[in-house]
Amino acid sequence: MRRLLAVVGAVAMIGAAVLVRDGVLDGGGSGGGGGSGAGGDGPTRLICATELADACQALADEDGDVTFDVQPAGDTAELLTEAAFDPADADFDAWLTLQPWPALVELRRELAQRGPALGETSDVLATSPLDVIGPTERLDTLVGTVCDAEPETPVWRCFGDNAGADWDDVGGESGWGRVEVGFADPTESATGLLILGQASAEYFGALGGESFARNDFDAAFSSWLRAIADSSPNLPSTAGTPLSQLLQYGLASWDAVGDLDWTADARVQGSRDEDSLTVTYSSFMLAEVVAVPVRGHGLPDLSGGGPRNALLDAGFTNPTYDIEPSRSVSPINPGLYQALLEEWELAS
């Protein structure tokens, strides 16, 4: 399978440590030490994207002045975009999330002719590649038989092309039902949005420096997205991420899901289906963790060893990757992400 990381030189757990040591979490803030909310002294209140809950818990455990709430990035973005949102009255000081959400918030506010809500986004604190996880036999069948046929098709492009198809039409067994592939709702999930971008870039061939834009969207792309959206398995509950559902319901649920590498590693290892699951990659794309203060609010100095180690213990890494350029997703700007979200909402 396509374990790109097996052939790249990964230098883990360095970047985040350096960045934290250099105090980037102070970015945009006015305070230090014990935190500085809008009201001055007192605990620092973070909102953490769901994917970063463990990291925030570790931070709070290390620093008694840090409190936090966990929320899907989409919910926080909605809050920050509301006309009624006033940074001065905000009941939290900063947002720990994935790119491009801070920029997306400011874009939405700008489109709504509202002023900025956030301060300066920090440098990247940590990264994670995006994974594809699925039952080995099914991934082998789909990727090995269909996607890797000449010419080789990127995995998400191939998944979308076959989403909803009967397995026995694509080389699988009829008892497997239909091809069910997906990712977390991109309107809510920071990870889901990134995978939507990754999959769309593959659809348009925007790898290795090639780009795509809203102008490229057409009916065929809408159908392709709809096939992915409609292929979700019929589970009794929508709770949890697709990866959680895959681990809970096994073969009856997803045939392939996208998620963050650090999440996948932690969740798949030790799960009851570990031996029958494969973690693999499609095109290369990094999820980037950033912190951003609410405008006018500050952040604590997190440069001490304790907080740094807490971040590392929670799975933050910052390796360097040596990826074949032609396999890398070209950068996607916030405006294009917004357009993709609108297209997704139409499709789903």
């Binding site: 067994e173 497997w176 039902g177 239909r178 019929n234 589970l235 096994g250 073969l251 009856a252 649920s253």
Partner: peptide, 9 residues
């Protein structure tokens, strides 16, 4: 190891 797939409601 079953079920392998689910029906749509």
């Amino acid at each position: 190891d079953q079920p392998q797939t689910l029906l749509e409601v």
